[in-house]
Design a protein around this nucleic acid. Structure first.
Lengths: 359, 359
DNA sequence: CTGTTAGCGCTTTCAA
DNA sequence: TTGAAAGCGCTAACAG
């Protein structure tokens, strides 16, 4: 679409109140065929300058805007991406911003779909409704659902008639997955705690049904085992990513191991709960117990004490997800031009703050 | 749409990989006209039972799903609602969930649009793109932008060809606004602090360009003045809703008024920063300084100490917003049936925790 | 370079 | 109760 962004267009929008300005109307007023108008709008080179000018002028004057709907119907693609999530627990502000910006810059609109309370039937419905809406591709932003439960078997996958990109799912050859290396996340956090000289390092994990949660557990375990430090299941408690659940998990963990001197918590919000539990017991952070989280939420710098955490660039995560999906969409439609692949992989870094300061 | 939710449908989806099943195909196979199929799909009563059964059977067998696109093109409505926000700062998880659930139950899909960095031109573009997409209505979820700056003048408003519902905007007769009474929020918080016997009550506000922020300031001021307590501008510092900005604002406030014994902070995240500032100065909460926030974020129960806060039911906020919009859409299209209005107004309540416990 | 002819998949007339 | 015809607004495939 090459219509000038002149704000005058907007002033003509009033016409819509009467009757939508269509391509035919423009054609008539400009004294050309609909096809020519279409060519002008779509930047086809095969239009004479004189005609182009005249048409463009008419378009401006009438405030014509091509109907995305009609366009989609004929072209077969909607330039719309469906985003599926159970709630916005995985898709937070930053991830959304990253996706929205990138999608917009590539000319795609975003359609959000909530999964109804995690039932498999609901999932089918959501998928179908997305098909009905002719979305060009899907971002699967519900890492908790149906990944490892082999829900997404090859058969089912083959049935979805458009590309899907999975956020942080277990990697499988037939799935396009975009996500961080969460084993490494666990390693980074745990290594830091080891480097501080801690020996009794517990872990508060996310729901083990989530792949990311399991990965972080693995990173923690591997690191400890490599260092010859205890890493049994008794040192793990599971939360549900919320602060309160983190507090409860910490209580259980500290009840069982009062001598614990460090905890790697699988996300910042649970780390907040963990700190509260520690405060309640009169444990000093980090002297008595060091804590490391994951996410680097903007708030975590204001926790008491400020939290050491493994930072994930969610915005870039969103960027990469959309870019990857659009590339798949393009090849799906056999586009001539190809969006370039993302330059960097998804990386994370340790942000050291008072809850576990450098040695 | 009344197509049985039989999961078998899904298994037929594979057909899509070859060629989309259209109404004509169904008509042909069922030996009826397209019209009849259309009638069956749209639950028209004027179809004989025999025919209906046969058509439904064919629909199931072929896995036919009506194309929302084609349908929209003819019917003129898309059953899609556009949600405009600058980022997801105002639209948080709960608000989104409330909207998504309600929209889904009323048969609407949600299209999310991000405002490009708050420029007026960008706003025009977003609005236009929503018009292009034929959304049936718009939720304006960017309370910071263009409310009081008279951006939304009557003229401009008249130009948007579909209903708009504004989230938490300044009330004006020509605008449909859904939001909490934020003056009352300020009053509730401040009254609580007064009831604790506090006399030097400061306020950390959100950006004064936001209407909600100004409302909360008003509530704070009115309450203090009514009680004959100082409420000057020197007792206010402005943040940008983030925790860090709250910390900075608190620093400034406490520098200027070291004798302050309470602070009403306009949201929980800034309250977190405020608490950190207090801790840093060795002030005990609540003994030396009591703090009240707004929102009741799930995390706030795990702040140290747990935060007293004014709870807003964001989920219901979302429910009401969508319900209101859909009602307007229905009358816009002159629908026969009318969605019932929300039962309750938006209310808030004080959640008392340790940062400002009951007297 | 430009126009004509067909649709895209569905709904809305209007007849039968 | 059913069907035929005529679009919705646009693009694709051919002509010229």
């Amino acid at each position: 679409m090459s219509i000038g962004r002149n704000r005058k267009i907007y002033w003509r929008l009033s016409v819509l109140l009467e009757k939508r300005v269509t391509i035919s109307r423009v054609a008539a007023e400009a004294g050309v065929s609909k096809q020519t108008v279409s060519r002008v709008v779509n930047q086809s080179p095969s239009v004479s300058d004189t005609t182009r000018t005249r048409v463009l002028e008419t378009i401006e004057r009438l405030g014509f805007r091509p109907s995305a709907l009609a366009r989609n119907l004929t072209s077969g693609r909607s330039h719309t991406i469906g985003i599926v999530s159970s709630d916005l627990s995985y898709i937070n502000t930053d991830l959304y911003l990253g996706m929205a910006r990138r999608a917009e810059s590539l000319g795609y609109a975003l359609m959000l779909k909530k999964l109804p309370e995690s039932t498999p039937e609901g999932v089918e419905d959501v998928l179908l409704s997305l098909v009905d809406l002719h979305v060009d591709g899907i971002i699967w932003g519900a890492p908790d659902l149906g990944h490892n439960q082999e829900w997404w078997d090859t058969e089912r996958l083959a049935r979805v008639p458009m590309p899907i990109v999975f956020m942080s799912a277990e990697r499988r050859p037939e799935l396009t997955v975009v996500g961080f290396d969460n084993v490494e996340v666990g390693q980074i956090a745990t290594r830091h705690l080891l480097s501080l000289g801690r020996k009794r390092i517990g872990h508060i994990s996310g729901p083990r049904s989530w792949w990311v949660a399991r990965q972080r557990v693995d990173g923690w375990r591997e690191t400890l085992e490599a260092a010859g430090v205890a890493a049994g299941e008794d040192l793990i408690e599971e939360g549900d990513w919320t602060a309160v659940s983190g507090q409860a998990a910490a209580e259980r963990l500290l009840d069982r191991h009062p001598d614990m001197d460090a905890i790697f918590v699988a996300n910042d919000r649970m780390a907040l709960g963990t700190m509260l539990a520690a405060h309640r017991r009169g444990l000093r952070i980090p002297q008595d117990i060091a804590i490391v989280g994951v996410d680097d939420l903007p708030e975590s710098a204001c926790y008491y004490p400020p939290l050491t955490t493994v930072r994930q660039d969610k915005r870039y995560h969103g960027y990469v997800a959309i870019t990857t999906l659009v590339r798949r969409i393009e090849q799906h439609f056999g586009a001539k031009t190809q969006t370039p692949a993302p330059e960097h992989p998804l990386e994370h870094s340790l942000i050291v703050r008072e809850s576990a300061p450098a040695a």
